[in-house]
Measured scan of single mutants.
Amino acid sequence: EPLWIRPDAPSRCTWQLGRPASESPHHHTAPAKSPKILPDILKKIGDTPMVRINKIGKKFGLKCELLAKCEFFNAGGSVKDRISLRMIEDAERDGTLKPGDTIIEPTSGNTGIGLALAAAVRGYRCIIVMPEKMSSEKVDVLRALGAEIVRTPTNARFDSPESHVGVAWRLKNEIPNSHILDQYRNASNPLAHYDTTADEILQQCDGKLDMLVASVGTGGTITGIARKLKEKCPGCRIIGVDPEGSILAEPEELNQTEQTTYEVEGIGYDFIPTVLDRTVVDKWFKSNDEEAFTFARMLIAQEGLLCGGSAGSTVAVAVKAAQELQEGQRCVVILPDSVRNYMTKFLSDRWMLQKGFLKEEDLTEKKPWWWHLRVQELGLSAPLTVLPTITCGHTIEILREKGFDQAPVVDEAGVILGMVTLGNMLSSLLAGKVQPSDQVGKVIYKQFKQIRLTDTLGRLSHILEMDHFALVVHEQIQYHSTGKSSQRQMVFGVVTAIDLLNFVAAQERDQK
């Protein structure tokens, strides 16, 4: 057995438009009618409502009807409940999964919650491996369901041993009777949507819809739904939504950006999952974080739909894509998950301010006199920076000697690579993860907040409520011999709460 199987392995699926269902090699399930009293909570997966979006479509000038398939009504709160249950049931049916076995899954959280929910009911041990950027709410729900959680670096490539995929496979090879159901490759993922989600949409719309818009992560949702719609409703256009920084969209030119990270969760990847059939997507749109969270908040405030950030991405694209539809036509959007997962993220004004998705003037509360002053007023001194090749031991000596707790790590040209902190280095040394002679590049981390000289002290204040420091950066445009230009970030300084307090105190003292 291989040590790991690539999540982007070539698909062996034989589905073709027009091929009889009787030739399918898979076990198919028909939607079942729910009894009045459910035998367990797993029976509350599927049969989610279709809700008309009344205000947002009109606000953006849509002539067509805009409908939302509300997947956050599933038992675990997301569309991923469907595939989690289906993968477990299919693994039980073919004898792969037996009582007492362990389920391991690399996930952005929602599939993990679905699997942990099913594992709690069915009696399996469950280990979820997820990147650090995923919300604390997801972690809390997983723990409450009895799952064990392993976190991995957000910026690790999918084929790196440190990625959530790599760590999951390492655990599988170490733990007896453990299984990775593997949402990236498992046919049960798109089949769950082909058999149930798509049929529900067709039934709820009486077979009449002209466009379907869905955000894409593993691709199982859009693949399964689109294949069924292509068979039953061939005139329906399928629109895929991919965040900026991901590479799922086609044509490839759409993916060209210097951005590699994004805040919206559960969609987009740096590889093409095996289950994603991009041939059934008629057109791709890219979405960005700001519009995703703005539209998610709009869905909550104006439509009462308590959905997550990827739902915002989907609707932001839908109001663009559906401009081509006329009166009497219908566009369906998939709202994948609930706001429950993001209470401390985009639902929080403070978080939105820190990330730059909300401006101070958007909030009406009274601010102190210094709130709208610029960061450049602080008069920061030149920063202490270190090269990635310097040793951890030497870096600790320098920081202690100069009285700093942290320093930016830059390359020879001064471009920011990340940050090192005294606390992080000492804990890594004590844990045996690094040696004093190791290069400081081994303990770089990139989960820090950046701020510009033109940003306000109010925004800085919000950042420092949650973080010990902020890195002050400025952009530099560099022209190359080819005539092309590129933008790079340079370090201007490091600012802490002490710097802000000293500035405010000094100004008030001078005024007296």
Rank of each mutant, 00 (worst) to 15 (best):
G240K: 05
G240Q: 01
G240H: 02
D242M: 00
P243Q: 01
P243A: 03
E244I: 08
E244T: 08
G245L: 02
G245W: 07
S246E: 03
I247L: 15
I247R: 08
L248S: 04
A249T: 01
E250S: 12
E250A: 14
Q256I: 12
Q256Y: 12
Q256C: 15
T257K: 10
T257L: 14
Q259W: 07
T260C: 09
T261Q: 11
E263Q: 13
E265I: 00
I267L: 05
G268I: 01
Y269L: 01
D270T: 05
I272F: 13
I272E: 06
I272A: 02
P273L: 06
P273A: 08
P273Q: 06
T274I: 08
T274V: 04
L276R: 01
L276I: 07
D277L: 05
R278F: 03
T279E: 11
T279V: 12
V280S: 13
V280E: 10
V281M: 11
V281D: 04
D282F: 15
D282M: 05
D282G: 12
K283W: 12
K283G: 05
W284P: 00
W284I: 00
F285M: 02
F285D: 13
F285H: 10
K286A: 04
D289Y: 00
E291Q: 15
T294F: 14
F295Y: 13
F295S: 15
A296H: 02
R297Q: 05
M298F: 04
L299I: 08
L299N: 04
L299F: 03
I300M: 11
E303Y: 06
L305M: 11
L305P: 02
L305S: 01
L306I: 05
L306G: 04
C307E: 02
G308Q: 01
G309N: 02
S310C: 04
S310P: 00
S310V: 01
T314A: 12
V315H: 06
A316S: 04
A316E: 10
V317Q: 07
V317E: 09
A318P: 01
V319R: 02
V319C: 14
V319Y: 08
K320T: 13
A321N: 01
A321C: 14
A321H: 12
A322G: 08
Q323N: 08
L325T: 05
Q326W: 08
E327Y: 08
E327G: 06
R330A: 08
V332E: 03
V332R: 00
V333P: 06
V333N: 01
V333L: 15
I334W: 00
L335W: 00
D337P: 04
S338D: 06
R340M: 06
R340P: 04
M343D: 05
K345F: 00
F346Y: 05
L347T: 02
S348W: 05
S348Y: 04
S348C: 03
D349M: 02
D349V: 09
D349P: 04
R350I: 07
W351A: 01
Q354I: 03
K355W: 10
G356R: 09
F357H: 08
F357Y: 11
F357W: 07
E361F: 14
D362M: 09
D362V: 12
D362Q: 10
D362C: 01
T364F: 11
E365K: 13
E365I: 14
K366H: 06
P368G: 09
W369M: 11
W370A: 05
W370M: 05
W370H: 06
W371N: 09
H372T: 14
R374Q: 05
R374V: 08
L378R: 01
G379H: 10
G379F: 11
L380Q: 12
S381T: 15
S381V: 13
A382C: 04
T385D: 04
T385F: 08
T385E: 07
T385L: 12
V386T: 12
V386Q: 08
L387I: 15
I390W: 15
I390L: 13
T391C: 09
C392D: 08
C392E: 09
C392R: 03
H394D: 10
I398V: 08
I398P: 03
I398T: 13
E401H: 15
K402T: 15
K402R: 15
G403S: 13
F404P: 03
Q406T: 12
Q406E: 12
Q406P: 02
A407F: 13
A407V: 15
P408K: 05
P408A: 08
V409F: 08
V410W: 07
V410D: 08
D411I: 12
E412T: 15
A413D: 01
G414Q: 11
V415L: 14
G418T: 09
M419T: 15
V420P: 00
N424V: 15
M425L: 15
L426A: 10
L426G: 14
L426Y: 11
S427E: 01
S428P: 15
S428M: 05
S428T: 14
L429I: 14
L429E: 03
L429T: 03
A431Q: 07
A431I: 09
G432Y: 02
G432W: 07
G432I: 15
G432E: 10
K433S: 09
K433F: 15
V434W: 05
P436R: 15
S437I: 12
D438G: 14
D438P: 09
D438Q: 09
Q439Y: 15
V440D: 06
V440Y: 05
K442N: 15
V443P: 09
I444M: 13
Y445E: 03
Y445L: 14
Y445W: 04
K446F: 15
K449W: 15
Q450W: 15
Q450E: 15
Q450T: 10
I451D: 06
R452I: 06
R452H: 15
L453S: 05
L453W: 08
L453I: 14
T454V: 14
T454G: 07
D455V: 12
D455H: 14
D455M: 11
T456R: 10
L457P: 02
L457W: 00
L457E: 00
L457A: 04
G458P: 07
R459C: 10
R459Y: 10
R459T: 11
L460F: 13
L460G: 07
L460C: 08
L460S: 07
H462K: 13
I463P: 11
I463Y: 11
I463E: 08
L464Q: 13
E465V: 10
E465L: 15
M466K: 14
D467C: 07
D467N: 14
H468E: 06
F469K: 08
A470V: 15
H474T: 09
E475C: 14
Q476N: 13
Q476H: 13
I477L: 13
I477G: 06
Q478V: 06
Y479H: 03
S481T: 12
S481Y: 09
T482G: 04
G483M: 15
K484T: 03
S485A: 14
S485I: 11
S486D: 15
S486P: 05
R488K: 15
Q489N: 13
M490T: 02
G493A: 12
G493Y: 14
G493F: 13
V494P: 04
V494M: 15
V495L: 15
A497D: 12
A497L: 02
A497G: 11
I498S: 10
I498Q: 02
D499I: 02
D499W: 01
L500G: 06
L501S: 03
L501E: 01
L501G: 02
F503R: 11
F503S: 06
V504H: 09
V504W: 10
A505G: 15
A506V: 08
Q507V: 14
Q507S: 13
Q507I: 14
R509C: 14
D510L: 11
D510G: 13
D510E: 14
Q511I: 11
